[in-house]
Structures are given as C-alpha cells and as structure tokens.
Nucleic acid binder design. Structure first.
Lengths: 105, 105
DNA sequence: AATTTGTGAAACCAAAAAGTTGCACATATA
DNA sequence: TATATGTGCAACTTTTTGGTTTCACAAATT
C-alpha cells in the first residue's frame, strides 16, 4: 500500500476534509457531521491522510483532534513548479508577440 | 465515471506521462517506450487524461501526437491557493514574532 | 459500579481502476 | 495489391478503493 499525497487528494471527500480542518483542528465526530457517510468512513479517510503525513493528531482526554499539516501541501506546489515555469514562459512569449505587434503598428 | 484532474494525477504513471509530454507532443508508441507496461495500458492512461481535458491530440497521417494542455494544470494551482494563503500567513506570524523578540532585546 | 460517549480496527462487500490479450481498421510502404 | 505499422476499443482479470456493519476499549458521566 504505497500512499502518497497525490493519491490522498484524489478523493473528493478527503479534499473536503483537508479544507475543513485547514484552519482549526477537529474531532472525527465533528468532521463526520459534515458528510453523508458514516463516522467510520471518515475515520478511514483520516487514517489515510495520517499515513501520508498530511494530518496529525492531538489527544485531549478521550477526544482526538485532527489537524492539517499544511507544510505537506507544499509538496504538490513543488510538483507544479515545473509546469508553472512552462506556462509563465508561454505567457511571456505571448507578451513578446503583443509587443512586437504594437511596434509594427 | 467521474473523472477530474485530481484523480488524473493520482496515478504515478500518469504523472510521468504528463511530465514527459509537457514540453513536446509525443505519439502513444513513443510514450509507451518510457514505461514497463504495454502500449495499450499507456493508451488507456492517455484516454483518461484526454477525458479530463489535460491532454489534446493532433493527428498527423496515421500518427497521433498527444500534448499537455498546460492551462488545465492551473486548476490544481487554484485549489492550492486557499492553503497558500494559510501557510504564508503563518510565515508572517513567525516573522512578526521574530520582530517583536528583537524589539524586546 | 454501571452506562454513555468517542474512537480505532477488523471483516466483509460492491464498485472502480489498472492492467492484459485480442481484435479491428486506417494509413503507410513494399 | 499485399504487408507492415500506428492506433483505439472491447472483453476479461486482478487489485485497490470506499463504504458499511460489528466489535473492542478507554475515558467521561451517572
């Protein structure tokens, strides 16, 4: 079972969970209330998110608070970097084209 | 079959294909040469990538060139935006902390 | 001490995904 | 025209995924 962050964000429910806990930590029950599926299903998603280190837990009494480890999200950003370079250079090419068209005029 | 870009990039082979054709269009055969799996498997990946509009085809004689539609990649970037705001504000909080510590000194 | 509450984990199931083999078909090339 | 080449598609198989139900257990509450 090789879990990586790209697989983690493939599921729409997991993406919603990530967004939900991005700003404040929440318990599994509180998270599950936002979805149609059972608490156990949400719990399974949290397990997957924990496995690929996107989420961390903090125990408080019998409650467990799950929080997003936001630095991990940067890995996606890092992968996108290669494409950002390309789309920016294309934008520049377009920009140059516009400039040269204006000069002609 | 709900295909979205997040599911498309979940598979490591598909991510590799995306990177491979980012700079120049390639035929299915040429792409398949870079991987262990069969041409048909690669062809299936290309179909999925085409379905979610990450890739476009250009027929040249009997060959079909597949090219990345790089603008589509921006959708991922767009989703990341919400988290970028958070991680930047956290960085600023840290920055403010450092500044106030220096003032104290 | 008995009960309720919050949680994880295992067993099971249906659907989807990823791969393979085999085929059809059009376009080149001999 | 006969053959080789490039490709997509359908059928089938195996593995993975997302979900449910059921259970165990510890921490709160009564």
């Amino acid at each position: 079972m090789r879990r990586d962050i790209f697989q983690a964000i493939a599921d729409p429910t997991r993406r919603a969970i990530i967004t939900l806990i991005a700003l404040q930590a929440m318990t599994p029950n509180a998270i599950a209330e936002h979805f149609d599926s059972t608490r156990q299903a949400v719990s399974k998603h949290l397990r997957i998110l924990t496995e690929c280190e996107l989420v961390q837990q903090e125990q408080k009494g019998r409650e467990i608070y799950y929080q997003l480890k936001i630095e991990k999200m940067k890995e996606i950003d890092k992968w996108l970097e290669q494409f950002r370079t390309i789309w920016e250079s294309r934008f520049n090419q377009l920009d140059n084209l516009i400039v040269s068209l204006k000069k002609k005029k």
